[in-house]
Design a protein around this nucleic acid. Structure first.
Length: 397
DNA sequence: CCTCCACTGGAAACCTAGGCTC
DNA sequence: GAGCCTAGGTTTCCAGTGGAGG
């Protein structure tokens, strides 16, 4: 509906506002209470506490599926530890290795939290991993810092780049004296240990903690607490919280998902100008959250991956690598883009499969060879909508 | 039971952008 | 500024393969 700008602002002013503190539902929000995680908090605090009298705590590994509170617990405890530290020698650093996306960027992020001399800053590119590591270790050594390094989604780092860097970090004890380095690894993947060099594992996993998924009841309680902070009183009925908890609970007790859902539902309610966050808002939010996730994934894709995806969308009934590649070449020619080799396109198909944007299952057709059965998993309308934002692809849409 | 297709996917070489050293 | 280095993406090369059809 073509609401005029003023109308939108008027409605906002009139105060159909449902939120009183939206931040309480933002992904960055760390509540000072983490219900149902008291014992984990206590244990992590216990393990890290030697840092306060200048000795090195055990390295620590936290396991559990997404949204089970690993990150929140780690950040909460590390933050408090930092606050309690009178010596001011403790430096804490949190990096999500999947978001940093490469070894280099992960190290650069770590370096940001260290006092690096002017000529030892880390540029965006150009240095070897080894050089960056040296600079990081030297900074710790020179300023006698105790770095407590939280590596979130460490399984991503190891699966994509191997455990070399991690190995360097685990034996950094010898490199960084008189400074100290303590590692807190966070992994979503319970099997990730199998991939690790035993030397790394024995050092990193000196202490381990498993985070069980939240039950639906626990999710409901968490949501209720957050809702009272985030929303005005009486705005969120119990039934809404129940549905929200149930939806998130069915997806392996993911609290982040649950909180996300509630926030978006609140925004939908506000926009519709209704006075409560209804169950219907939750359902709409559930769809929205999912399609946003996909749209973001699409937007951040390199041009060639977009083109491969677009090619796949031209085959509503699915196709295979060879046929897709021929069509892809044609489209690339029309766009004046250099076509990649079939080997590379095959690799891109595997990447897109991993992202859940299409299905590329290897199938054998007997005498007619082996190939990937390729099927788009997203709406081609949505694909067209997002890809048309890319000026290079516009002429094909 | 064997063949042989149409690829797969590992390995290595190659390319490019960008920082470093001198 | 020349020449060197690295990371990350791509190409080149190729041995390997699941299973329908013979």
């Amino acid at each position: 509906l073509p609401d005029s700008i003023d109308e939108i602002f008027q409605r906002a002013k009139k105060g159909r506002a449902l939120f009183q503190n939206r931040d309480a539902l933002s992904p960055e929000f760390i509540p000072d209470q983490l219900p149902f995680r008291e014992s984990q908090i206590r244990q992590v605090a216990q393990i890290l506490s030697p840092a306060l009298h200048g000795s090195k705590p055990s390295n620590l590994l936290l396991y559990g599926k997404t949204g089970t509170g690993k990150t929140a617990v780690a950040r909460l405890v590390v933050e408090r530890l930092h606050a309690q530290d009178a010596s001011k020698e403790i430096v804490t650093c949190y990096v999500n290795t999947r978001i940093s996306s490469t070894e280099y960027r992960t190290l650069a992020k770590i370096a940001e939290s260290l006092p690096l001399e002017k000529d030892k800053q880390i540029p965006g590119t150009g240095l070897s991993i080894g050089t960056v590591l040296d600079r990081v270790f030297n900074a710790i050594k020179a300023s006698k810092i105790h770095l407590i390094l939280v590596l979130d989604e460490i399984d991503y780092l190891v699966n994509t780049y191997g455990d070399d860097v991690l190995y360097q970090f685990t034996r950094a004890g010898e490199h960084v004296e008189p400074g100290l380095l303590t590692l807190v690894g966070i992994s979503n993947d319970l099997k990730f240990k199998d991939e690790l060099d035993p030397r790394v594992l024995s050092s990193l996993g000196e202490e381990e903690l498993v985070f069980p998924p939240y039950t639906t009841d626990e999710l409901r309680a968490i949501l209720a607490t957050r809702a009272t902070i985030a929303f005005k009183t009486g705005v969120v009925p119990d039934a809404t919280l129940n549905l929200c908890a149930a939806l998130a609970g069915s997806e392996h007790g993911d609290a982040r998902r649950a909180v996300d859902l509630l926030r978006v539902a609140g925004e939908i309610g506000e926009r519709e100008g209704i006075h409560q966050v209804t169950e219907d808002c939750i359902r709409k939010a559930s769809e929205r959250v999912e399609s946003n996730r996909i749209e973001d994934a699409l937007r951040s894709l390199p041009i060639q991956n977009k083109l491969v995806l677009l090619t796949a969308s031209r085959f509503p009934d699915g196709t295979n690598t060879g046929d897709l590649y021929m069509a892809y070449e044609g489209l690339a020619r029309r766009l004046g883009i250099e076509a990649l080799t079939q080997r590379r396109v095959s690799g891109i198909l595997a990447e897109l499969d991993l992202l859940g944007l299409l299905e590329a299952a290897v199938v054998s057709k007997g005498r007619r060879g082996r190939t990937k059965r390729i099927r788009l998993l997203i709406h081609s309308d949505m694909l067209g909508k997002v890809l048309s934002e890319d000026s290079q692809l516009l002429s094909l849409l």
